[in-house]
Amino acid sequence: MNLLQRVWRSSLGKKYLMALTGLALFGFVVGHLVGNLQVFGNPELINSYAHFLKSKPGLLWGARLGLLATVAVHVGAALTLSAANKAARPVAYAGGSAYGSSWRSRYMLVSGLVIMAFVVYHLLHYTVQLPAVNGGLDFHSLTTRLADGTQVQDVYAMMIHGFQVGWVSLFYLIAQALLFIHLGHGLSSMFQSLGLRNHVWGPRIAAFAQVASFAVFLGYASIPVAVLTGMGGDYVKNLKKAPTTTIETLR
């Protein structure tokens, strides 16, 4: 058997894959967050960042496909393991179950699946920019000019508009809360799965997982909260009058 087969056929091998892909996805979550947090700067900042990404289609699509594969492995391993886990306990206990387990660990599958559903929605929302998932607004119509005069998509406006829709922000916040649960367990248990944990590092890793997952939550949640409390409101209002944008579609 080759290495990949050996890994996939063993329950522990799959746990390694879960851990490694989880780590990669965490890397993406952090990178994406850093990118998004630029929304708190001048609109030019995030717009030029978005433009930079789009101007490197090779890199962008490479990253997208890489992420897709990572997600596929992460989810594939999770679903097969979880099916095996369910089969290992054919009859449930009547007197209560999962004594002594950490509560987050019990919701990994459900939090993961909801997060995945959110990611699909999120992609439709901001990447495919389907008007139907955003109360009818076509994001393609939002463009602006950078200082050097390049015409680019107005990502800043997209974000503000997007999060001004109450239920969009709510779904976003729920997904972030679930991500917080998912990472709080996943970030520490990936070390356990990979065997990079002992009695000295165990508590430190657990603390890191708490802090990191909460920081990620705060970071992401800050954006819709800021938008809902007024951030960028003036920008999009002004935008409606600016000649370079197609204000008609903004209704």
């Binding site: 329950s11 522990l12 799959k14 746990k15 390694y16 393991l81 095996a84 886990n85 369910k86 089969a87 290992a88 306990r89 999962a98 004594y99 002594g100 387990s101 950490s102 660990s105 019990r106 990994m108 367990h185 520490s188 248990s189 070390f191 356990q192 799965s193 990979l194 065997g195 990079l196 944990r197 002992n198 009695h199 165990g202």
Partner: peptide, 26 residues
């Protein structure tokens, strides 16, 4: 089944064997 690091095993073990050994085995 596989380990999802819930910690139940350690909590009920009559000899209080630590989850650290799972990491070591992994």
């Amino acid at each position: 089944g596989a380990c999802t690091v819930t910690g139940s095993c350690e909590a009920v073990c009559p000899k209080e064997i630590s989850l650290d050994f799972i990491a070591r085995m992994n």
